[in-house]
């Protein structure tokens, strides 16, 4: 972008470098541990045979979204951590369990779920929302997350 004439305090290079620095910090302290944890988790589930079991048990439920039962692990992980949900989805895709269509549907769903385990405190707690609404807000997030997967699967037809 040519933005030479603007009177900004920091120049564009500085801003870019600062942003990348915070990107590096987020990547190392947040994304990487989440991804590693997710890969360990999936490995543990695979080795123990639990992933197979989860696939069978949740198969009929996840079939509502035309997904394999194993996809349920993504949603459970997303409830606890957005990065974890993404990591589990990546690991399942790389193991050949999820298709690109499944991943496309799960990606927004992971974020819409809103990571209630952490964000009830960080968002609702910080803003001092009345605690009697916490359950309803969490329920709305979960419902929307499930609806988003249908919407994405429907939108996929366009691409």
């Amino acid at each position: 972008m040519s933005t030479t004439e603007t009177a900004v305090k920091k120049n564009i290079i500085d801003m870019f470098i600062d942003g990348m620095r915070s990107g590096l910090r987020i990547a190392i302290t947040n994304m990487l541990p989440n991804v590693v944890l997710a890969f360990i988790l999936i490995r543990a589930l695979q080795v123990s045979g639990l992933l197979n079991l989860i696939g069978k048990v949740f198969g009929p439920v996840m079939a509502l979204w035309a997904m394999p039962g194993e996809a349920a692990t993504v949603l459970v992980a997303a409830f606890m951590s957005m990065g974890g949900g993404v990591g589990v989805a990546a690991s399942l895709y790389l193991s050949g369990i999820l298709t690109p269509a499944d991943v496309s549907a799960l990606l927004p769903a992971i974020y819409i779920m809103g990571n209630p385990m952490q964000n009830v405190g960080r968002c609702l707690g910080t803003a001092e929302v009345n605690t009697k609404y916490f359950t309803v807000i969490t329920a709305i997030c979960i419902i929307n997350s499930l609806l988003a997967m249908w919407l994405m699967k429907a939108l996929l037809v366009l691409f």
Partner: peptide, 23 residues
């Protein structure tokens, strides 16, 4: 709370799935 820190989260952790999506 839903999809909070939208841009930061999507362009950090979400990047993990960018290569695997069909949209």
């Amino acid at each position: 709370i839903s999809a909070s820190a939208t841009i930061t989260n999507y362009f950090s952790s979400g990047v993990a799935l960018f290569g695997f999506i069909s949209v």
